[in-house]
Design a binder for these strands. Structure first.
Length: 111
DNA sequence: GCCATGACGGAGC
DNA sequence: TGCTCCGCCATGG
């Protein structure tokens, strides 16, 4: 175990009906630029942990596909839709609406 | 211990 | 708007 522990902690904090990007998770986990490690970490722990991995998507707002996942991406989409998240015609999620802003600082909320 | 790969991100064309 | 290339670093052979 290592910094990944922070990644799992962050993912578990994603609220129902919202999503976060790998890069965002990495940043919150104090691993800026290591978005890849986030996805890799989730892939290794997902099946044996209570982590809502389906709420983690890429920066494009879509579900990442990979030959090692086969059809898991379809399951992920189903889970997200079950939470009320809508996909557009391109199968992507509107991050401007569903993106989890993580732990927002009060000062940053001035926008 | 070295080499190749990978749920990504961002810049460049 | 969409595709391609490079960078980052842990894991496995």
């Amino acid at each position: 175990m290592s910094s990944y522990d922070a990644i799992y902690a962050i993912v578990q904090q994603i609220p129902y009906g919202q999503v976060a990007t790998y890069g965002q998770i990495a940043e919150l986990a104090n691993l800026p630029g290591r978005a890849r490690l986030v996805g890799y970490a989730l892939f290794r722990v997902a099946p044996e942990a209570d982590i809502p991995w389906h709420r983690v998507i890429n920066a494009k707002g879509e579900i990442s596909e990979s030959p090692v996942r086969y059809g898991s991406d379809y399951l992920q989409r189903s889970l997200l839709e079950a939470e009320g998240i809508q996909f557009n015609a391109q199968g992507r999620i509107n991050l401007r609406i569903y993106r989890w802003q993580g732990v927002i600082d009060a000062a940053q909320n001035s926008q």
